[in-house]
Amino acid sequence: MRFDILTIFPTAFSYLNKGIIDKAQKKGKLDINIWDIREFSKDKHKKVDDKPYGGGVGMILKVQPIHDCLVSIGVFPKRDEKTAIVLMQPGGEIWTQQKATEFRNKFNRIVIICGHYQGVDGRVSEYLVDYEISIGEYVLSGGELPAMVLVDSISRLVDGVLGNKLSISGEPYLNNIVKSAPIYTTPRNFLLANGLVCSVPEVLLSGHHKNIENWKRSNTQNSNNTSVQNLDKTD
Protein backbone atom coordinates (compact mmCIF):
# COMPACT_ATOMS: atom_id res chain seq x y z
CA MET A 1 0.00 0.00 0.00
CA ARG A 2 1.37 3.40 -0.99
CA PHE A 3 0.50 6.69 0.66
CA ASP A 4 1.42 10.15 -0.64
CA ILE A 5 0.82 13.00 1.80
CA LEU A 6 0.79 16.63 0.61
CA THR A 7 1.48 19.08 3.43
CA ILE A 8 3.10 22.38 4.33
CA PHE A 9 4.52 20.76 7.48
CA PRO A 10 6.48 17.69 6.34
CA THR A 11 8.29 17.37 9.68
CA ALA A 12 4.98 16.79 11.46
CA PHE A 13 4.88 13.13 10.40
CA SER A 14 7.56 11.64 12.65
CA TYR A 15 4.88 9.38 14.16
CA LEU A 16 4.87 7.40 10.92
CA ASN A 17 8.51 6.47 11.54
CA LYS A 18 7.74 4.70 14.80
CA GLY A 19 6.19 1.44 15.96
CA ILE A 20 4.06 -0.74 13.71
CA ILE A 21 3.98 1.72 10.81
CA ASP A 22 7.76 2.06 10.77
CA LYS A 23 8.27 -1.72 10.87
CA ALA A 24 5.78 -2.20 8.03
CA GLN A 25 7.68 0.29 5.87
CA LYS A 26 10.95 -1.51 6.53
CA LYS A 27 9.32 -4.81 5.56
CA GLY A 28 8.07 -3.27 2.32
CA LYS A 29 4.39 -3.56 3.27
CA LEU A 30 3.89 0.21 3.22
CA ASP A 31 5.38 2.97 1.10
CA ILE A 32 4.78 6.39 2.67
CA ASN A 33 5.89 9.54 0.88
CA ILE A 34 5.68 13.07 2.31
CA TRP A 35 5.53 15.94 -0.18
CA ASP A 36 6.17 19.55 0.82
CA ILE A 37 3.59 21.64 -1.03
CA ARG A 38 5.84 24.71 -0.76
CA GLU A 39 8.35 23.07 -3.09
CA PHE A 40 5.78 23.29 -5.88
CA SER A 41 4.88 26.96 -5.41
CA LYS A 42 5.70 29.26 -8.33
CA ASP A 43 5.99 32.21 -5.97
CA LYS A 44 9.60 33.31 -5.52
CA HIS A 45 9.10 33.23 -1.75
CA LYS A 46 7.43 29.79 -1.90
CA LYS A 47 4.16 31.28 -0.70
CA VAL A 48 1.27 28.81 -0.81
CA ASP A 49 -1.62 30.88 0.57
CA ASP A 50 -3.47 34.10 -0.21
CA LYS A 51 -6.49 36.16 0.81
CA PRO A 52 -9.94 34.90 -0.23
CA TYR A 53 -11.75 36.49 -3.15
CA GLY A 54 -14.94 38.21 -2.06
CA GLY A 55 -13.53 39.02 1.36
CA GLY A 56 -13.42 37.03 4.55
CA VAL A 57 -11.07 36.20 7.38
CA GLY A 58 -7.91 34.16 7.21
CA MET A 59 -5.77 32.87 4.38
CA ILE A 60 -6.62 30.21 1.80
CA LEU A 61 -4.33 27.43 0.59
CA LYS A 62 -3.82 28.00 -3.14
CA VAL A 63 -4.76 25.52 -5.86
CA GLN A 64 -1.57 25.91 -7.94
CA PRO A 65 1.00 24.24 -5.64
CA ILE A 66 -1.38 21.38 -4.89
CA HIS A 67 -2.18 20.85 -8.55
CA ASP A 68 1.47 20.89 -9.59
CA CYS A 69 2.41 18.44 -6.85
CA LEU A 70 -0.30 16.02 -7.99
CA VAL A 71 0.95 16.31 -11.56
CA SER A 72 4.54 15.76 -10.43
CA ILE A 73 3.75 12.52 -8.58
CA GLY A 74 1.75 11.20 -11.52
CA VAL A 75 -1.83 11.17 -10.24
CA PHE A 76 -3.25 14.07 -12.28
CA PRO A 77 -4.76 14.56 -14.81
CA LYS A 78 -4.95 10.77 -15.12
CA ARG A 79 -4.78 8.03 -12.51
CA ASP A 80 -5.83 4.41 -12.41
CA GLU A 81 -8.88 3.12 -10.57
CA LYS A 82 -6.73 1.78 -7.73
CA THR A 83 -5.62 5.31 -6.78
CA ALA A 84 -7.66 7.76 -4.70
CA ILE A 85 -7.02 11.42 -3.90
CA VAL A 86 -8.38 12.57 -0.54
CA LEU A 87 -8.71 16.06 0.91
CA MET A 88 -8.78 16.28 4.70
CA GLN A 89 -11.08 19.06 5.80
CA PRO A 90 -14.02 19.84 8.11
CA GLY A 91 -17.36 19.08 6.55
CA GLY A 92 -16.11 16.03 4.70
CA GLU A 93 -17.48 12.52 5.10
CA ILE A 94 -16.85 11.22 8.61
CA TRP A 95 -14.12 8.59 8.71
CA THR A 96 -15.12 5.20 10.11
CA GLN A 97 -13.68 1.71 10.41
CA GLN A 98 -16.01 0.66 7.61
CA LYS A 99 -14.54 3.39 5.40
CA ALA A 100 -11.00 2.30 6.28
CA THR A 101 -11.84 -1.25 5.21
CA GLU A 102 -13.40 0.03 1.99
CA PHE A 103 -10.28 2.02 1.12
CA ARG A 104 -8.00 -0.91 1.95
CA ASN A 105 -9.95 -3.22 -0.35
CA LYS A 106 -10.48 -0.74 -3.17
CA PHE A 107 -7.16 1.09 -3.49
CA ASN A 108 -3.43 0.38 -3.47
CA ARG A 109 -2.39 4.04 -3.56
CA ILE A 110 -3.94 6.83 -1.52
CA VAL A 111 -2.96 10.48 -1.92
CA ILE A 112 -3.87 12.68 1.05
CA ILE A 113 -3.98 16.48 0.88
CA CYS A 114 -3.67 18.22 4.24
CA GLY A 115 -5.76 21.37 4.41
CA HIS A 116 -4.54 24.33 6.43
CA TYR A 117 -5.08 28.01 7.18
CA GLN A 118 -8.72 29.06 6.80
CA GLY A 119 -9.31 26.43 4.16
CA VAL A 120 -8.38 25.21 0.70
CA ASP A 121 -9.24 26.82 -2.63
CA GLY A 122 -12.59 25.35 -3.70
CA ARG A 123 -11.18 24.22 -7.04
CA VAL A 124 -9.17 21.55 -5.25
CA SER A 125 -12.40 19.87 -4.11
CA GLU A 126 -14.18 20.51 -7.37
CA TYR A 127 -11.54 19.36 -9.84
CA LEU A 128 -8.69 17.49 -8.16
CA VAL A 129 -9.91 15.11 -5.46
CA ASP A 130 -12.10 12.03 -5.22
CA TYR A 131 -13.04 12.24 -1.54
CA GLU A 132 -13.35 14.86 1.18
CA ILE A 133 -12.82 13.28 4.59
CA SER A 134 -13.17 14.50 8.18
CA ILE A 135 -12.23 12.52 11.28
CA GLY A 136 -14.91 14.14 13.43
CA GLU A 137 -17.26 17.02 13.98
CA TYR A 138 -14.65 19.43 15.28
CA VAL A 139 -12.02 21.70 13.77
CA LEU A 140 -8.24 21.22 13.94
CA SER A 141 -5.46 23.59 12.92
CA GLY A 142 -4.57 21.49 9.90
CA GLY A 143 -5.01 18.18 8.13
CA GLU A 144 -1.78 16.59 9.33
CA LEU A 145 -3.22 14.76 12.35
CA PRO A 146 -6.27 13.53 10.39
CA ALA A 147 -3.97 12.33 7.60
CA MET A 148 -2.04 10.19 10.08
CA VAL A 149 -5.32 8.78 11.38
CA LEU A 150 -6.18 7.63 7.86
CA VAL A 151 -2.75 6.13 7.27
CA ASP A 152 -2.76 4.25 10.59
CA SER A 153 -6.33 2.94 10.34
CA ILE A 154 -5.85 1.68 6.77
CA SER A 155 -2.34 0.33 7.30
CA ARG A 156 -3.47 -1.96 10.13
CA LEU A 157 -5.66 -3.77 7.60
CA VAL A 158 -2.84 -4.42 5.13
CA ASP A 159 -1.65 -8.03 5.14
CA GLY A 160 1.57 -8.42 7.08
CA VAL A 161 1.46 -5.08 8.90
CA LEU A 162 0.21 -6.55 12.17
CA GLY A 163 2.15 -9.57 13.34
CA ASN A 164 -0.94 -11.54 14.33
CA LYS A 165 -4.12 -11.64 12.24
CA LEU A 166 -6.05 -12.25 15.45
CA SER A 167 -5.05 -8.72 16.44
CA ILE A 168 -7.36 -7.49 13.69
CA SER A 169 -10.15 -10.05 13.97
CA GLY A 170 -10.39 -9.42 17.70
CA GLU A 171 -10.83 -5.68 17.38
CA PRO A 172 -14.38 -4.71 18.39
CA TYR A 173 -14.94 -1.99 15.80
CA LEU A 174 -14.72 -4.52 12.99
CA ASN A 175 -18.04 -5.93 14.19
CA ASN A 176 -19.77 -2.57 14.67
CA ILE A 177 -19.07 -2.73 18.39
CA VAL A 178 -18.13 0.51 20.07
CA LYS A 179 -17.23 -0.64 23.57
CA SER A 180 -15.23 -3.81 24.09
CA ALA A 181 -14.90 -5.76 27.31
CA PRO A 182 -12.30 -4.37 29.75
CA ILE A 183 -8.83 -5.90 29.53
CA TYR A 184 -6.34 -6.36 32.37
CA THR A 185 -2.72 -7.27 33.02
CA THR A 186 -0.41 -7.55 36.04
CA PRO A 187 -0.59 -6.96 38.93
CA ARG A 188 -3.69 -8.92 39.97
CA ASN A 189 -4.34 -6.47 42.79
CA PHE A 190 -3.39 -2.80 42.78
CA LEU A 191 -3.56 -0.34 45.67
CA LEU A 192 -4.83 3.10 44.67
CA ALA A 193 -3.64 6.28 46.38
CA ASN A 194 -7.06 6.59 48.06
CA GLY A 195 -6.60 3.23 49.79
CA LEU A 196 -8.91 1.25 47.50
CA VAL A 197 -7.66 -2.08 46.20
CA CYS A 198 -8.73 -2.74 42.62
CA SER A 199 -8.51 -6.32 41.42
CA VAL A 200 -8.70 -8.27 38.19
CA PRO A 201 -12.04 -10.11 37.82
CA GLU A 202 -11.62 -13.64 39.16
CA VAL A 203 -13.10 -15.25 36.06
CA LEU A 204 -10.14 -14.04 33.99
CA LEU A 205 -7.78 -15.84 36.36
CA SER A 206 -9.75 -19.08 36.38
CA GLY A 207 -8.29 -20.68 33.28
CA HIS A 208 -11.84 -21.69 32.27
CA HIS A 209 -11.90 -20.59 28.64
CA LYS A 210 -15.65 -20.89 28.12
CA ASN A 211 -16.43 -18.84 31.21
CA ILE A 212 -13.86 -16.25 30.18
CA GLU A 213 -15.36 -15.99 26.70
CA ASN A 214 -18.86 -15.64 28.15
CA TRP A 215 -17.64 -12.90 30.49
CA LYS A 216 -16.04 -11.01 27.60
CA ARG A 217 -19.18 -11.26 25.50
CA SER A 218 -21.45 -10.13 28.32
CA ASN A 219 -19.20 -7.12 28.94
CA THR A 220 -18.98 -6.09 25.29
CA GLN A 221 -21.57 -3.64 24.04
CA ASN A 222 -22.73 -2.45 20.66
CA SER A 223 -23.77 1.08 19.78
CA ASN A 224 -27.15 0.55 21.48
CA ASN A 225 -25.50 -0.41 24.78
CA THR A 226 -26.82 -3.94 24.30
CA SER A 227 -24.48 -6.76 25.23
CA VAL A 228 -23.37 -9.10 22.47
CA GLN A 229 -24.59 -12.01 24.56
CA ASN A 230 -28.07 -10.50 24.70
CA LEU A 231 -28.05 -9.87 20.98
CA ASP A 232 -27.35 -13.55 20.36
CA LYS A 233 -30.38 -14.53 22.43
CA THR A 234 -32.71 -12.45 20.28
CA ASP A 235 -31.58 -13.93 16.95
Results as ranks from 00 to 15, higher is better:
His209Pro: 09
Thr83Phe: 14
Asp36Gln: 00
Val178His: 13
Lys27Pro: 00
Lys165Pro: 10
Asp121His: 12
Thr185Lys: 13
Cys198Arg: 12
Arg2Trp: 05
Ile32Ala: 02
Arg217Asn: 08
Gly122Ile: 09
Val197Phe: 00
Gly58Met: 12
Thr83Val: 13
Met1Pro: 04
Glu93Gly: 09
Leu192Met: 08
Ser218Tyr: 09
Asn211Met: 10
Trp215Arg: 03
Ile21Trp: 06
Gly92Ala: 02
Phe190Gly: 09
Val124Tyr: 00
Met148Ile: 08
Arg188His: 10
Leu145Ala: 10
Lys210Asn: 09
Leu204Asp: 09
Thr7Gly: 00
Tyr138Ala: 08
Lys62Met: 15
Lys165Ile: 10
Arg2Lys: 14
Phe40Ala: 00
Ser180Pro: 06
Glu171Trp: 14
Asn224Pro: 01
Val75Trp: 13
Arg109Tyr: 09
Ile73Gln: 06
Ile37Gln: 01
Lys179Val: 13
Asn175Lys: 15
Cys114Asn: 01
Val63Glu: 11
Gly143Leu: 00
Phe190Asn: 10
Glu202Gln: 05
Leu61Lys: 04
Gly119Ser: 01
Asp4Ala: 06
Cys114Phe: 01
Gly74Cys: 12
Gln25Ala: 03
Ile32Asn: 00
Pro201Ala: 03
Asp36Tyr: 02
Thr185Ile: 12
Gly28Trp: 06
Lys99Leu: 06
Asn189Lys: 12
Leu128Phe: 11
Gly136Asp: 07
Gln229Val: 11
Gly160Gln: 08
Ile5His: 00
Glu102His: 13
Thr185Phe: 13
Ser167Gln: 08
Val197Gly: 02
Ile34Cys: 03
Arg156Met: 07
Asn224Leu: 11
Arg188Ile: 13
Pro10Tyr: 01
Ala181Val: 08
His208Ser: 08
Ser169Ile: 09
Trp215Asn: 01
Thr186Val: 13
Asn211His: 10
Met59Ser: 13
Asn224Gln: 14
Ile5Phe: 00
His209Ala: 10
Leu145Asp: 07
Ala181Phe: 06
Pro172Ile: 10
Asp4Gly: 04
Leu174Met: 12
Lys47Leu: 12
Asn225Thr: 03
Phe40Met: 01
Glu126Arg: 13
Leu140Asn: 02
Ile135Ala: 02
Lys42Asp: 05
Asn230Ala: 10
Pro10Val: 04
Ser134Gly: 02
Gly55Ile: 14
Gln98Phe: 07
Arg156Ile: 08
His67Cys: 10
Gly91Lys: 03
Lys62Asp: 12
Lys78His: 14
Pro201Arg: 04
Val120Phe: 01
Ile110Cys: 02
Leu150Tyr: 03
Gly143Phe: 00
Asp68Pro: 03
Met88Pro: 00
Ile66Pro: 01
Ile60Trp: 05
Arg104His: 12
His116Val: 03
Glu81Tyr: 14
Tyr127Leu: 15
Glu81Ala: 14
Asn222Val: 06
Ser218Phe: 09
Lys99Gly: 05
Gly56Cys: 14
Glu93Ser: 12
Cys198Lys: 12
Glu132Gly: 05
Leu150Ala: 04
Phe40Glu: 01
Leu150Phe: 05
Arg2Cys: 04
Thr186Asn: 13
Leu204Met: 08
Ala181Arg: 01
Leu191Cys: 04
Gly55Tyr: 13
Glu213Trp: 09
Gly163His: 04
Glu137Pro: 04
